[in-house]
Simulated scan of single mutants.
Amino acid sequence: MRDPNAPPIRLLMVEDNPGDARLVRALLAETGGFELSCAETMAEAQSWLAENAADAVLLDLSLPDSHGLETIDRMRGLAPMAPVVVFTGLADEDVGVAAVKRGCQDYLVKGVGDGQLISRTVLYAIERKTLEVERAQSADRMKKVLLQTVRAMSLTLEMRDPYTAGHQRRVANLAVAIGRTMGWSEHTLEGLQTGALIHDLGKINVPSDFLSRPGRLSDAAFGVVKSHAAVGAEIVDGIDFPWPVADMIRQHHERMDGSGYPLGLTAESIIPEARVLAVADVVEAISSHRPYRPALGMDVALAEIRNHCGTRYDPEAVACCEKVIAQEGEAVFGEIALGQ
């Protein structure tokens, strides 16, 4: 039950039929608790919203300057935080479902129900919108904590292995630049960055001597080093990331022709993020210093991916990597902001 001492709900009704608007005003006057403002067009609604805040919007879908479901999109653009209840003469369930899918909180048919129904529907819409906002804020906080944890894991590994200090960050920055050039969404890029920042996490299970020893390793020792991809994936397998992070880690040494490890996957069996990560990883590794050799330089790194394009490495990832390096050079290894 609504608190009788609470301030009135500021309801904006966008309706071009004066008779319908008068009826709703009369019905809500009987229930009380509402401060109703009316606009006959989307342009009027925009002007009103520029100077006022609405707790909820009652929206007709047939207006002189806006018609159909696009009216919902326009209203959500004008008042993204206000819950929207569609109010129309179309008794069409499909329209109601489509309206809710476009972000409306509810759907009312004109001439059906009384003031109590309208009141309950608007109050429920406000409650639903509040819960949606709270869930989104909670998810955002959880994601930030998750990403902070990922960064901490990355730094922990780099402190243990000074020769690869910064390697994961540089790979992540190059991978994101490649993915962005490929036209990936910010959500997918965020996942790519997350996986790249801990793609070598499994090396925490490799003796530090194997990671820093100059010269070639024995086949047995190299086999232990190669296990890092599978081990890293196992470490994060139980974490409910909103991206396929475990697969990125497991597959970042897979190659298009099946010559990679640990599973010998080929082509489309390798997820797109891992294909991009493979290119970024090898370019950074070849162009940077390693305990068993000095840095070979960017020209050698690009020659590696170019000479094995389509066999070891994904052609689109290679082409986009070359484009990124041509535009930015090694400055691409610096920090890249995502959604900040």
Results as ranks from 00 to 15, higher is better:
123 L>G: 07
113 G>M: 06
242 P>A: 01
222 F>Y: 13
149 T>P: 04
126 I>N: 02
214 P>C: 06
120 R>Q: 13
166 G>W: 02
188 T>M: 12
235 I>N: 00
164 T>S: 15
129 K>W: 09
138 S>C: 08
234 E>F: 12
206 V>A: 03
223 G>H: 04
159 M>D: 13
169 R>E: 11
145 V>R: 06
113 G>N: 09
230 A>V: 03
130 T>M: 09
201 L>F: 10
190 E>N: 13
210 F>D: 09
242 P>K: 08
231 V>A: 13
145 V>D: 05
231 V>G: 01
194 T>S: 14
237 D>F: 05
216 R>W: 08
132 E>T: 01
124 Y>H: 14
189 L>N: 02
239 I>Y: 08
107 Y>H: 05
202 G>R: 00
123 L>A: 11
156 T>R: 10
217 L>E: 06
167 H>S: 00
167 H>C: 03
161 D>V: 15
183 G>C: 09
103 G>T: 09
100 V>G: 06
217 L>C: 08
134 E>T: 13
166 G>A: 04
137 Q>V: 07
147 L>R: 15
168 Q>G: 07
105 Q>F: 07
137 Q>S: 13
177 A>I: 03
133 V>D: 11
227 S>H: 10
233 A>E: 11
124 Y>N: 14
220 A>H: 10
174 L>A: 01
114 D>P: 09
105 Q>R: 12
232 G>W: 06
235 I>W: 09
221 A>V: 08
118 I>C: 08
195 G>F: 06
178 I>H: 00
103 G>V: 10
101 K>Q: 14
136 A>E: 13
137 Q>A: 15
210 F>G: 08
183 G>P: 09
203 K>L: 13
203 K>S: 06
112 V>E: 14
229 A>R: 11
100 V>Y: 05
180 R>K: 12
155 L>D: 12
235 I>K: 07
230 A>L: 13
136 A>F: 05
208 S>M: 10
185 S>P: 05
202 G>S: 00
154 S>G: 15
166 G>N: 06
199 H>K: 04
186 E>V: 13
173 N>M: 05
145 V>N: 04
233 A>I: 00
150 V>W: 00
130 T>E: 12
233 A>P: 07
221 A>C: 04
219 D>A: 15
154 S>V: 04
131 L>V: 09
187 H>L: 09
132 E>H: 06
125 A>W: 05
182 M>Y: 05
187 H>I: 04
178 I>E: 03
111 G>R: 02
129 K>M: 14
145 V>L: 15
181 T>V: 01
243 W>G: 02
144 K>P: 02
214 P>H: 09
206 V>G: 02
243 W>L: 04
195 G>T: 05
227 S>Q: 12
224 V>Q: 12
110 K>D: 01
209 D>S: 14
211 L>M: 14
189 L>T: 01
193 Q>R: 15
143 K>C: 08
134 E>P: 09
164 T>H: 15
209 D>G: 08
190 E>C: 13
194 T>Q: 09
176 V>S: 02
197 L>K: 03
238 G>Q: 11
165 A>W: 15
218 S>T: 15
228 H>A: 06
160 R>E: 12
173 N>A: 00
132 E>Q: 15
122 V>L: 07
202 G>N: 04
208 S>L: 11
212 S>R: 13
181 T>I: 01
162 P>W: 03
174 L>R: 06
188 T>W: 11
112 V>F: 14
143 K>G: 07
123 L>Q: 15
104 C>D: 02
174 L>Y: 00
152 A>Y: 02
154 S>T: 04
117 L>Y: 04
